[in-house]
């Protein structure tokens, strides 16, 4: 048997080809959007669709950023103490409590949407407020922040905290000056995930958003539904994905990929 054609080599080549083929499939829908977004009215190459994005769609992008940012802040404020309380103390039912808090991840968005819009309507009177939308995003996404933070905290040996306390740091000083910086990557991972999910969320938003708010993904959805396949809509979708991808790359660049362990990104 010839060395160049040995089964082992063929298997290796086929393996890598398989990976690349599937990766190609992954970016195919995105590539199609890019291709179409760069097409002018007579099928020529054009950048004008993107000018439209930063003209007519600025408001939608603005809402998306605003909602994402507010959601991130609230997520941080509730997830950090919760993670600490879940990892550093022992009490019965801890695992159950964690499952109880993670459950929103497994509720289909349409169900969360209909349930929230009805309670906002009849119980909370939140339908006309931007806070209703933000809280809906919070409940759907904060477990994504909680999980990597819990993982990071669990991997952090308790000796650092004990050392800080023995050196005379108060509980709060320990928390702020030792624990926080050390679990930074975990928190970062959580923020990244939350940002990606909330920034691109359209379904729950579709149900609960007040009439005066249209986020970018909802705008994409509405335009696809009603106006058909416009290159300008494709351009907006491309911009959204590029922003999300840049966030991911930024994170990889700062922390590497290992902190996404235990989350929903590899």
């Amino acid at each position: 048997m010839n060395r160049l054609l040995s089964t082992r080599r063929l298997t290796d080549i086929a393996s890598h080809a398989y990976i690349w083929l599937l990766l190609l499939l992954f970016v195919m829908p995105f590539a199609a959007l890019v291709n179409y977004s760069l097409t002018g009215p007579r099928g020529e190459f054009a950048l004008q669709n993107f000018a439209y994005v930063f003209g007519s769609f600025t408001e939608n992008l603005g809402w998306s950023f605003r909602i994402s940012l507010l959601t991130l802040l609230i997520n941080l404020a509730i997830s950090l103490p919760a993670a600490y309380g879940l990892v550093r103390y022992n009490y019965p039912g801890k695992h159950l409590l964690f499952a109880f808090l993670s459950l929103p991840l497994y509720v289909p968005a349409a169900v969360l949407g209909i349930a929230l819009v009805l309670t906002f309507n009849f119980t909370y009177r939140l339908t006309t407020s931007e806070w209703g939308l933000v809280l809906a995003m919070v409940v759907g996404s904060f477990p994504l922040m909680l999980t990597p933070t819990v993982v990071a905290l669990k991997d952090l040996p308790i000796v650092f905290e004990e050392a800080a306390q023995c050196l005379g740091a108060s509980k709060w000083q320990t928390y702020w000056r030792v624990v926080f910086p050390l679990i930074g990557p975990g928190i970062g991972a959580g923020m990244l995930l939350c940002f990606i999910i909330v920034f691109n969320e359209y379904l729950v938003t579709l149900f609960v958003k007040p009439t005066f708010i249209t986020t970018a993904p909802v705008r994409v959805f509405n335009l696809v539904r009603t106006a058909g396949l416009l290159p300008t809509t494709a351009a907006l979708a491309v911009v959204m994905q590029v922003i999300s991808f840049l966030a991911v790359l930024l994170f990889f660049r700062i922390y590497g990929t290992r902190y996404l362990k235990g989350t929903y990104l590899l």
């Binding site: 990766l23 195919m28 995105f30 990606i196 999910i197 359209y202 993904p217 959805f221 991808f245 991911v248």
Partner: peptide, 24 residues
């Protein structure tokens, strides 16, 4: 790491996938 970077694309949402596929 490269594979992971590619694999985040579906994460951005089924909406874009469905939209992109319509063009395909």
């Amino acid at each position: 790491n490269l594979v992971r970077s590619f694999m985040v694309f579906p994460m951005f949402g089924a909406l874009y996938i469905a939209f992109g596929m319509r063009f395909l």
